[in-house]
Design a protein around this nucleic acid. Structure first.
Lengths: 332, 332
DNA sequence: TTGAAAGCGCTAACAA
DNA sequence: TTGTTAGCGCTTTCAA
């Protein structure tokens, strides 16, 4: 069942049928009706692979995020979908598992599908990955971060500044023996930038940083539960700590829950602050002091800029800072 | 930059280059090396759109879920990804927002991309959607449910039986004035089947069903917070209720949290049971009694069966029941 | 407003 | 082990 079958059945040429199927306005009403009727009668399903090859537009937006599990990036994806749905684009989502080597493979796999645009979380990529993104010949939006050397479009916030401000706020609340819990740090990644913001705030205040713990990345559930236990052990072994700053919301939530189960009072024995504001943060007891990130907003803004590019309305690189917000709740 | 450029640069024919790029073993080592070197030198990125058109295999698995936000279906997607990653398939994910009309549009959009297989949550579709799925000419796996009339493969569990068992268990615990909170019910959808299981268990026990409340579907966060408040109001207006069964985990979590904020004791004043077991269920206070669903498992099993189909190893329809598990925790 | 011709970049099928 | 030929199904381009 091909377009030519529909065209014959409608008594027109393939080109007229093609124009009707794509909604071009330059077709006589009679032809249009005949083609629609024939398509419906025959149950015709257009082959977009063929169309994409010829038109050099795939209608696909490639999206690369660390993970879909855990609602943090799922919100961003929803922001992207919200915008692109109206334009008949489909998302093709790749997961990097917070690993830039794996990210490179994912990018390579997606670029072969000739997406019309690429959205990628983070600004830290392998050289080969940067090269693939640059030479893909389509607009690229890096999100969730800021950098002085964007590939093209950037829609994010300063992870350094957000961590700096939160640390500063904790110091203002009177906490002095701060400790840090973070996921894996690679220089230049988000956990690394947040760590640096934390250290810079301490340095500027003349406070010596306390101990740190690095929690491996599991998946969502395990990062909360296993990670929480690891952190609770760490707090037990370092009982002088009065405040723990977690660069990762899952670790923070896990720590609050693990402390609750062990009878460690939060914030009485130790205050805990997170980074990310997933919905569980406002549901646990005590509710979590954290940095609220605008995940949905970043997805939506990036998608809007790309949509404009794809319609040919603009073409300069753009830099958008969506900011962040400190949420002071009960845990610190 | 096309395959022919690589071939020329390597001094072989396009076909030999094509064979090398696709990893066919029937190529001389010298040719293989020459092609790989040329591809690397030129920065060649294969055009999989062209390859798909000719080979009639897209390397795409279409996945249709109600939503990605909220980790319930994200776990299922992870199960699918886990399996298909090894075979170089990419997922193309569509969201139906729990709306079968929208689902039909999403299916139509995805089928045009000629996926090699389709995985769809639920067994309740519009007639047109069923027709699109059947005539797509590829294996289709319906998941998250059971039915006597599957399209092809089915990997799920009985929502009716799970709700029946949970209700039965609540009765065994001594609760007698039960009420129901559910998301939108369409005959044949999962919320509907769960509602019927609940009603059947009450009927078999000779207990008259109490009042019910239908909570609209918002997004994850709002379903928990807004939905929770709606349910808490409902409980206040119906104070004789001693146990609330929620066919939806987000509503249950929201209700527990909203009750906590209003000083309603759970399970003292009213017991609450959920359905789904998202991770937040074990983190809130009190932790939630619920039906644990094997979301990851369903994704993995469906993907494995499809992978075997795609390799040509099997071809009969398959029916897999992954079951469920009652989790008795503090809330009921 | 319509149609004919050409070709997007790759791989199946066949032949050598 | 390699190469030639043809064509996947559509849309661009150009002409009428």
């Amino acid at each position: 069942m091909r377009l030519i079958d529909v065209a014959r059945s409608a008594g027109v040429s393939t080109m007229t049928a093609s124009r009707v199927m794509r909604g071009e306005p330059t077709v006589a009403v009679a032809s249009r009706d005949a083609v629609h009727a024939a398509a419906a009668r025959l149950g015709y399903v257009p082959n977009q692979v063929a169309g994409s090859l010829r038109s050099q537009r795939s209608g696909i937006i490639a999206v690369i995020v660390p993970t879909l599990t855990g609602s943090v990036f799922a919100e961003t994806v929803r922001g992207i979908t919200d915008t692109f749905d109206a334009y008949d684009y489909q998302l093709m989502i790749g997961e990097s598992s917070y690993d830039i080597e794996r990210e490179e493979k994912v990018i390579a796999a997606l670029v072969q599908r000739r997406p019309d645009a690429i959205i990628i979380a983070g600004v830290k990529h392998t050289p080969q990955a940067r090269s693939l993104l640059r030479s893909a010949g389509v607009p690229v939006a890096e999100i969730w971060d800021q950098t002085t050397h964007p590939i093209d479009i950037i829609v994010g916030f300063s992870n350094f500044q957000a961590a700096y401000d939160m640390t500063r706020g904790l110091l203002d609340k009177g906490y002095r023996r701060l400790a840090l819990a973070t996921g894996p740090v690679i220089p230049g990644n988000r956990a690394g930038e947040r760590t640096e913001g934390y250290l810079a705030a301490l340095k500027d205040a003349g406070i010596h940083p306390g101990p740190s713990i690095v929690v491996p990345y599991y998946n969502f559930l395990d990062s909360s539960l296993k990670g929480g236990n690891v952190v609770a052990d760490f707090l037990r072994d370092n009982s002088s700590i009065d405040c723990l700053f977690c660069t990762n919301e899952l670790i923070a939530i896990g720590a609050v829950v693990a402390c609750g189960r062990r009878g460690v009072k939060v914030p009485g024995d130790v205050a805990i602050a997170g980074f990310g504001d997933v919905e569980a943060a406002s549901i646990i007891t005590p509710d979590l002091t954290t940095v609220k990130i605008r995940g949905f907003e970043m997805g939506r803004r990036a998608a809007e800029i790309l949509a404009r590019r794809l319609l040919g309305e603009t073409s300069e690189p753009e830099i958008v800072d969506v900011g962040y917000e400190l949420k002071w709740r009960s845990s610190a």
